[in-house]
Design a protein around this nucleic acid. Structure first.
Lengths: 251, 251
DNA sequence: CGCTGCCTTGATCTTCTTCAAAACGTGTGG
DNA sequence: CCACACGTTTTGAAGAAGATCAAGGCAGCG
């Protein structure tokens, strides 16, 4: 049984033209918190945004930088990381098209608490935090939509805390794979492919573990026929059993 | 050296009158996200709130209940908990005067993801989630303030994730004590007292550990002169060294 | 075709959990 | 006011889970 060796992850072709002016309006309409606005308002809002491209592994901002801008992912994947003094990095969230990140408040954060790094080639739209706040003041519906999303993220973060504090590494990895599958999954012959370069180290950073443990668990999952995996990619074969594993923990 | 045996934690005298109508206006003004509104508006908002009292250990709502209301803590302490199928509980946040909890969004959560339990006698003000949303629509400044607070909580949750995934139990406990001290600390002869009944089990639930481990670590801290502790209470003596410990980890 | 970086696998060691039992404190009722 | 009874905390010892260290294998790329 020859394992599929070549990575099935296709890098999206992101070029400068992806951010071109004619496509920006369309994109902003797709962003969940502008969707409800009239076209005229979006056009006005659009003027405040500026497109920015980033190449793989390029930092968009560093933890500790003055928090001045808010970004919306137009294309590609961004990872939010938080560093520790001991050099260990924790991967907090993976962001995809339509997700926002960066500075929300004028008060509160003077500096970014985490770093944002392009996981793939990325095209993002950025606004000054102040401008965004002005937009929210002007359009309460936007503020409410942003609040909804932020509240949902807080729930997710709480769920992650619960997971990490009460479950084994195996369970946490199963859970994380499912979550990634939901968010970034793409049905292919291999199975539900997680459309993104994902190393053992990234995965370890998401579950609070080490690359070695992640590797062992993935191997085990593969042997059990739950997933298919290779260098920098994972595809899910059996969601149901993975689900079961993440909750109850019977191998 | 006779250790202080009696708990220095004073239970606040919370009676029904604490929630009396004449004091409610004053309270709502103190709540961070109504502070900026004119008195007339607050008066109007006040009409939508209803006061509710809870006794120690009484649940305010359970995880899974339909998420209908939003609460503001008027007096006392509330703990937000999330349960696991295996019976392990995780303590997510401790809420004190002025903090809100419950349902924020109309969309999103149909049911509460976590349970809220009165840690002390509690007086809370509650509104229907819809009413609160109406208030935010009407007063964008309120929506922005709530967003700020939610974003700050998200940051805290991310920080907790980082802590829990990258640090030892000892470091996590040191960090958690400092955080509690900041939020609930009260300077007394014993030191910076955490004004709240806090068992080893509660603490374990906050750091993803067990009561036994919490006990061992607290004993060790006490021997080292970092804290003073007893049944259901902790006071911080040496913030600096605790701080140092939580980050770098040198005992 | 060989280099670089990722991944795998094994052995050892530390940390934390688990189970169990004893000690303590707190509030109670005599 | 004292003694009892309860729940909390402490402490010990055994065990499991995962981290760490180290070596080798494999994929992709120049």
């Amino acid at each position: 049984m020859p394992r599929r060796r070549k990575s099935p992850v296709e890098s999206e072709p992101i070029e400068a033209h992806m951010c071109s002016i004619d496509l920006r309006l369309e994109l902003l309409q797709q962003v969940p918190f502008f969707a409800m606005l009239p076209a005229a308002a979006i056009k006005q809002i659009n003027a405040r945004f500026r497109e920015q491209g980033f190449t793989e592994e390029q930092p968009i901002f560093h933890a500790g930088d003055p928090a001045a801008r808010l970004y919306v992912v137009a294309a590609g994947k961004v990872k939010l990381m938080r560093h520790t003094l001991t050099g260990q990095d924790v991967l907090l969230e993976i962001l995809a098209k339509g997700d926002f990140f960066g500075s929300l408040s004028v008060l509160g954060d003077e500096t970014y608490p985490d770093s944002a790094i392009a996981q793939t080639t990325v095209c993002a739209l950025g606004v000054d935090a102040e401008d965004f706040r002005a937009i929210m003041s002007q359009h309460p519906a936007v503020a409410l939509a942003v609040l909804d999303i932020t509240a949902a993220r807080l729930r997710d973060a709480h769920e992650a805390i619960r997971q990490i504090s009460a479950h084994s590494a195996e369970q946490r990895i199963a859970y994380t794979l499912l979550k990634l599958g939901e968010k970034l999954g793409e049905q292919q012959e291999v199975g539900l492919l997680i459309q993104m370069p994902l190393s053992r180290e990234d995965l370890a950073g998401m579950v609070g573990s080490t690359p070695e443990t992640a590797s062992r668990v993935l191997s085990q999952f593969q042997k059990a026929g739950l997933i298919e995996t290779g260098r920098q990619w994972v595809a899910i074969l059996d969601q149901d059993r993975l689900q079961q594993l993440s909750a109850s923990g019977s191998a």
